[in-house]
Design a protein around this nucleic acid. Sequence first.
DNA 1: CAGATAACCGCACGACCGTACGCTTACCGT
DNA 2: ACGGTAAGCGTACGGTCGTGCGGTTATCTG
Lengths: 214, 214
Amino acid sequence: MSVTRADGRVERGNQTRRLILQRAVRIASVEGLEGLSLGRLANELGLSKSGVFALFGSKVELQLATVRAAIKVYTAYVVQPARELPPGLGQVWLLCRNWLTYSEQRVFPGGCFFYSVSAEYDAREGKVHDTVAGAHGNWFTLLERTIDEARRAGEVGEDTDIPQLAFEIVALLEMANAESVLHDNFTCYSKAADGILHRLRGVATDPSLLPLTP
Amino acid sequence: MSVTRADGRVERGNQTRRLILQRAVRIASVEGLEGLSLGRLANELGLSKSGVFALFGSKVELQLATVRAAIKVYTAYVVQPARELPPGLGQVWLLCRNWLTYSEQRVFPGGCFFYSVSAEYDAREGKVHDTVAGAHGNWFTLLERTIDEARRAGEVGEDTDIPQLAFEIVALLEMANAESVLHDNFTCYSKAADGILHRLRGVATDPSLLPLTP
DNA sequence: CAGATAACCGCACGACCGTACGCTTACCGT
DNA sequence: ACGGTAAGCGTACGGTCGTGCGGTTATCTG
């Protein structure tokens, strides 16, 4: 019965796991979670296949850990920076801008990680589907809550249909990602930004709270 | 040097190819074009793996044929019925309604075939990517042309930004598909229809051309 | 110090993958 | 009627997959 101290062994394991997951999220954003393979990961990182396997216990656990790792990256790039703003339309808009930048800058080489793996697992069953669907739902909920806080701050009309607005915003965000990755065409990001700004101005109590151009 | 007549052998081959592709598009809409395998297809249809292979020549050719088969289905369900209407906002709206129905009725069990395989191949290179991207581009172009014809018919404002409008419509369509498949929740179809109708009313010279409710 | 524990490796397994080749069978054009 | 051709099967190949097991090494616990 002792405090779990910094363990050289365990810590080394965690570091290797991080190294593997760093590569795994990049692979999965391009080739999907099914495109991951223990052998490939081991080869590319100079490890043994059995070593990689042992660190995660099974292929499914590796996939789940990969999704969790991607959530952390997503949170750090998109969600966290927006927390530093007070509730309001500015916060909503920053969330959207962060998302577009996160996609456009290819934080993951295949564009948004969750766009890729959601489409891959949407019609399947099992823990991977559930985890991916949960992450997607959490993002949606966060956006709705942020809009609702802007409403309570008086910057969004009281009669606004928030689920509808969130639906349309996410649609534009994901469409920009999809188009840009599929056709290597980055003009869609300003299309999405234009569309979102237009929608936000439509519900703003004071449209001057929003920038004139994306 | 003769007219290619109805050939019993060739015709039998075509029929088997159709049988295989019918199954292939269903599998691919759920598990992706990489989820297709010659052995699985052969097993499920009571054929031999080498027979299936011979009918297509290679895995990639099977995948390309699968995409072409899906295009035919898509055209028959979404595009063709709208051709029977004259150019105008009604035609644009019917195209959208057909798309939503095609997704909602699960013409393909995994929802829209092209949503699945576009996300799967968007960040890859090769003939499959090019074919998928081409199909997606054709759909986009068709929608833009249909809107432009409505504009020339005087039903859409002259100053309408058609690429922007098409972008937003497709975003809403695909978002409805994505949400409904991922979360088994069909309320998103009316969200998409609402959003599209709202956009169309915004550009219509005579909003009464459009229905009040989806 | 002794013993447990975890990282990591090498090796082997059964299954499935795409592809190749040769075979039989049935239909085709001439 | 005959030679060519395509459908479709059986078998085999080399490769990769996820997983299991035993062993070595380094670290932590008591």
